[in-house]
């Protein structure tokens, strides 16, 4: 068979939707586990360490590119399928009765679009800041030393700190290069590596007095969309891949649990930050 048919046929398109979709479910799980660290009180370091790991580890890098590709493929494939589906019924019905299928299953494209918009804004708000923002803060801790408060930059070397003030005042001959690296200017020697403070950015984002509430609400709504999308999508992926057997009831149950628990836990984080975090 021509390989092109394997990409273009209606059934093959669904394989790709299923495979990318299931891969994205894996991604969601990983992402959720990382995000949940935001719930650990007074421990920005864990979260920032996780963020650093996620942005620098080569294996994670490959996975992340796979994720981007999956999202793109899932979205483009989904759009192509939707266009074909719309074309398949040029004249609609005057009266319809939706009782024979679930609301979610009929609105996968709408839900997917909401999720896509969410992903774009989400990446603009966090991922882009993390990667490209020149003003991305580095994580620091405040300690009290002889009645004096002092802010120290945390570094990846345990126990090594750089005082914030001195760097800002250009003392000690230290400077920050490449946004995270502490350098001794004269020696042109890297003294340590700081953590981008994604934790702080995140907290600030959801605690913002003007936009924080709106951001929280939108985030939660997006998680509703995700939940409905998964509610149908998870088990549907197995059907698309031809898996419909004695395990199907279990797959369906697991899919339902996944579709409820994962978005719920995601949604709890901004709610916690906005309303509960001091």
């Amino acid at each position: 068979m021509a390989k092109s048919a394997f990409l273009k046929s209606s059934i093959a398109k669904k394989y790709w939707m299923a495979l990318t979709g299931l891969f994205l479910c894996l991604f969601l799980t990983g992402h959720l586990l990382g995000n949940l660290q935001l719930l650990i009180p007074d421990n920005a370091l864990h979260f920032n360490q996780y963020a650093l790991f996620m942005t620098t580890n080569p294996a994670v890098k490959i996975l992340s590119y796979l994720t981007y590709i999956s999202i793109l493929f899932h979205a483009i494939d989904g759009i192509l399928l939707t266009i074909q589906n719309k074309k398949a019924r040029p004249v609609g019905y005057a009266k319809t009765d939706g009782s024979s299928s679930s609301m979610a299953s009929r609105n996968m494209a709408v839900l997917g679009t909401i999720i896509l918009v969410f992903i774009v804004t989400h990446m603009a708000n966090f991922w882009a800041v993390m990667h490209f923002d020149k003003k991305m803060p580095l994580q620091s801790v405040t300690i009290e030393n002889m009645g004096q408060k002092m802010e120290l930059y945390v570094t990846t070397d345990t126990g090594k700190f750089f005082p914030k003030d001195s760097i800002q005042m250009m003392q000690n001959g230290l400077e920050i290069r490449n946004r995270t690296e502490f350098y001794n200017k004269q020696a042109n020697l890297k003294m340590g590596e700081g953590y981008k403070d994604l934790y702080k950015i995140t907290i600030a984002f959801f605690k913002d007095p003007k936009m924080g509430l709106i951001a929280t609400i939108l985030y939660v709504l997006a998680m509703f969309a995700l939940s409905f999308h998964l509610l149908h999508g998870f088990q549907s992926a197995f059907q698309s891949l031809g898996i419909n057997n004695k395990f199907t009831p279990a797959i369906k149950k697991f899919g339902t649990a996944f579709a409820i628990i994962v978005p719920l836990l995601f949604a709890i984080i901004p709610i916690y930050i906005h309303f509960l975090l001091k």
């Binding site: 398109k13 589906n85 698309s240």
Partner: peptide, 16 residues
């Protein structure tokens, strides 16, 4: 399946 696609039917969303 090739003929089905050529006829202009839509794709399966597994709505049931």
């Amino acid at each position: 399946v090739r003929q089905m696609d050529e006829e202009g039917f839509g794709n399966c969303t597994n709505t049931g």
